[in-house]
Simulated scan of single mutants.
Amino acid sequence: MARHDPEDLNRPTRIKGRGAGSNREGRFEELTKTLEDDGWYREGEGAPRPPTHVSLERARSIISRNDSPDIPFTQSINPYRGCEHGCNYCYARPSHAYLNLSPGLDFETQLFAKTNAAERLRVELAKPGYVCEPITLGANTDCYQPIEREYRITREIIEVLHECRHPLTIVTKNALVERDLDLLAPMARDNLVQVFVSLGNLDNRLASTLEPRATAPHRRMQVIANMTAAGVPCGVLVAPIIPAVTDMHIEHVLEQAAANGANIAGYTVLRLPLELKELFREWLDLHVPERAEHVMSLIRQMRGGRDYDARFGARMRGEGPYADLIRQRFALACRKHGLGRSRDLSLDTALFIPPRPDSPQGSLF
């Protein structure tokens, strides 16, 4: 049996159901791994499909806080680390390097579930100095990714927030959010919840390579309609906008979202921090090689000639003529279809009732 060049075995490749084409090392790893042909490789044999592995962990705290001027919320909860949706462009991928795992395939196959999230949330909400502000679910990784069906951690978090009448926003690419309408609908009547469906394009074939295990675009559009019909305000996030890949879908997504009842809209342009730069280039070479250089050229035009610009005020929207054109197109389409802007969202914080801390003496009231 003929031997094969190790470079062929280590070259990024398409893997059905996965967004990354490689498992390149994270920036903190000291070891480099390569594949070697052991003589059993057969010509034309497809790449192995890595299974999903979930590790259970106990979080020491659960509410994350930020003071970024680019983000319209100060508090968030991420029930999971890593995300099985496998979105190739996900800005959260580099965070897996802190776990000594790859931002590539490890990010979408080596997942961590915070099984005590609801318990920790009760403790933090009950603290005397806690100030009620909306909590966002799904800010880093998707709170309704496929493993939520089994672990139900997001459901448990919403049950606590529902009980305490605490406002929340949800960002997701998964139709599983409809499961929790029994909690979200009553909260919506008190202006305590806003759901956002993240939807960058309406092309199922494109989405299957960019975000392989997320709900299909046409089904996400139905989520907007179903949420609206149940009385839960639902907006759309056109994110991320990728030059020469998804930017031609902006107006169509906003038109269809408004037709299905979306109330507000927001957007971000593609961000490529740290290891994500190389992972996204791999995706371009695998799926749209004829456009790869053009796409990267447009990205650099929005980033001051670099692949990424981390400055506040620029990282989410970009700068320059191309970024200005996207901004104008988005604003015009929102006005045309009567969509509000996500930055204008306001939920009620005055109804919050702190949870009672457990006491061995019980409670008189």
Rank of each mutant, 00 (worst) to 15 (best):
Y267V: 01
Q301A: 11
A323T: 09
A259I: 01
A314I: 03
R329V: 07
A259H: 13
G318K: 01
S363N: 11
F280M: 01
M296I: 00
R317A: 14
T349R: 03
S363A: 03
L276D: 09
R271W: 08
E278P: 00
S297Q: 09
L364Y: 08
G320A: 02
A331M: 12
R271E: 15
R311V: 00
A350N: 14
I326N: 12
D344M: 08
G362R: 00
R329W: 04
R311D: 02
L286N: 02
H294P: 05
K336D: 15
R343G: 13
R356I: 09
G340T: 02
L286S: 02
L272G: 05
Y308E: 14
V269D: 09
F352S: 10
G261T: 02
A257H: 02
M302T: 07
C334K: 07
L351S: 05
P357I: 01
L347N: 00
I353D: 15
L272R: 02
E293M: 08
E293C: 10
L332Q: 14
A331F: 12
S346F: 03
L332N: 13
L298G: 02
L345T: 11
L339E: 06
N260V: 11
G320M: 05
S363K: 07
S297A: 14
D324S: 15
C334E: 10
F330C: 05
G313W: 01
L272E: 06
R300W: 07
S297E: 13
M316L: 14
A314Y: 06
R335V: 03
K277D: 12
R341H: 14
G313F: 03
A314M: 06
S297C: 05
L347H: 04
G338Y: 03
A350M: 04
S342T: 08
M296W: 02
I299G: 04
E319Y: 09
W283T: 07
L272F: 02
Q361D: 13
P354G: 03
N260G: 07
P354D: 11
G304Q: 04
R311G: 01
A333Q: 02
D285Y: 10
E319R: 13
L347S: 07
G261N: 05
R306Y: 13
S346T: 08
L276V: 08
V288N: 07
P273R: 02
A257C: 13
L276R: 00
G338R: 01
Q328D: 11
A333G: 05
L270N: 13
R343S: 12
K336F: 13
R341A: 12
L272V: 12
Q328S: 11
R306P: 06
E293V: 09
L276E: 00
Q328H: 08
Y267W: 07
D358A: 11
E282I: 01
R311M: 01
D324F: 10
A259G: 15
D309E: 12
V295A: 04
V269E: 06
M302Q: 04
V295G: 05
D324V: 08
P321G: 10
